[in-house]
Design a protein around this nucleic acid. Structure first.
Lengths: 245, 245
DNA sequence: GAGTGGTCTAGACCACGAG
DNA sequence: TCGTGGTCTAGACCACTCA
């Protein structure tokens, strides 16, 4: 026999599938649901945590829990960093540039010495009101001076790569390492998600022909609203509508 | 001010880093920790959930919580499916073959009609005692008859691809879609993880030269013990030792 | 101010693993 | 049997959003 909170998640999942609450609509308040299912608050919240991680509902603090529109996931396409189906449609990207010194983590990522000068570009991608991606892109000053990416509509830092090419540091290879974890407090705040929403953490390094690391990045993408897609060639996207069954 | 459970997670993280509890060792029981930090059970468990998702501790029901050995993550290498550093070292792979009919989800993945005959290969990769990967690999019967992958030490179904080549269905392109979510009850059971451990879910489709889908797979990898690596070329792996800082 | 989700309490009982 | 982690209760109070 399944746990109580899984039973409840199953039931709500079924109700959403049946169209009881259409996409975009608010589902009953947690207090009402916990009364209806005769469970306590933490138990009900475990159910909602499951549904949220599946991308079926979206939590909005102080407002309510909402049924997600299917296919609303934005797509990070590995290697070519091109927006996929619905990627950043009507979206907005904010960025910020700082000069920093490499800490241990950065030094390992970029293959430079601790304390080396590095340019940090922070991109926050928004879809509608909510932030959907956090990208911290780093370029060693030894590779290229700090520059302002122009008209950058990419939330993953494409503009930075364009700058690199202009500096003669063309990217010929990319490695991307992906793990699933919970966000740090800062990441959760920046992405406006709960600290208990799983995120995809992508660690990217770009190298030039001499195998020198010319760019590194830490990407944090909310698991409930983003997918990462890797293909061995340009590829025609197939059935992207299958949200999360 | 950070939440109480994040403060506690920070403190335990610091103690682990300081070597108070060496890798492989049990940390104090949850009841003791909740007494020490003067918090209730659910609060303390939220802290441990964070540490678990970072791969710092491993929970064993009925035994205790253990400090993970750093660099213990196994590596799924996208596109070429080659074990990376430490991948399946001393590991063991079990597999199981069944004839099934395509349900809706499978039909979408493989581009076949619902009810079409499909061969299902289930691989469970183990590292030491604990399962670390669950791969469900599907091949339409129209592409190739069911076959037994020989001496398959790959937990991702490499042997199946070898079979396909033998049948004249050579894979020329692969697309891999990655999301982060919580596991289903079945997945959590198969992987021996809690239902609140984030997992990486990889949906893979392999195509031949005619763009026919010759293989599809659903991979479920525990977020706390696996990473997914994608590179644009064979690549020499760099500093894989940085476990999860 | 009213309603919502987020955090937290101080326990209880169950399921699992080892001796 | 005993100690462990897993689930769950029936509340409380805080933080956020909107009218």
């Amino acid at each position: 026999m399944a746990n109580r909170y899984e039973q409840i998640a199953d039931d709500i999942r079924r109700l959403i599938a049946a169209g009881t609450w259409p996409p975009g609509e608010r589902i009953p308040a947690e207090s009402e649901l916990s009364t209806r299912y005769r469970v306590s608050t933490p138990t009900l919240r475990m159910s909602l945590d499951l549904l949220q991680s599946e991308g079926l509902i979206e939590k909005r603090h102080g407002i309510g829990n909402f049924v997600r529109t299917p296919g609303e996931r934005i797509v990070y396409v590995g290697d070519r960093r091109v927006g996929g189906v619905g990627a950043m449609v009507g979206g907005r990207v904010t960025h910020d540039i700082t000069e920093v010194e490499a800490d241990v983590r950065l030094a390992v990522l970029l293959g430079v010495r601790v304390g080396s000068p590095v340019t940090e570009y922070v991109f926050v991608g928004h879809q509608g009101d909510s932030p959907r991606s956090l990208a911290r892109v780093y370029v060693p000053r030894a590779v290229a001076p700090a520059g302002v990416p122009e008209a950058d509509e990419s939330p993953w830092g494409d503009g930075v790569r364009a700058l690199l090419t202009a500096e003669g540091a063309t990217v010929t290879a990319t490695a991307e390492r992906v793990i699933a974890r919970f966000p740090t407090a800062e990441e959760a705040y920046a992405l406006n998600i709960s600290t208990r929403t799983p995120v995809l953490a992508v660690e990217r390094t770009s190298m030039d022909a001499e195998d020198r690391v010319v760019e590194g990045a830490f990407l944090v993408l909310p698991g409930d609203g983003v997918e990462v897609l890797f293909t061995t060639r340009p590829a025609t996207p197939r059935g992207e509508t299958e949200a999360a069954g």
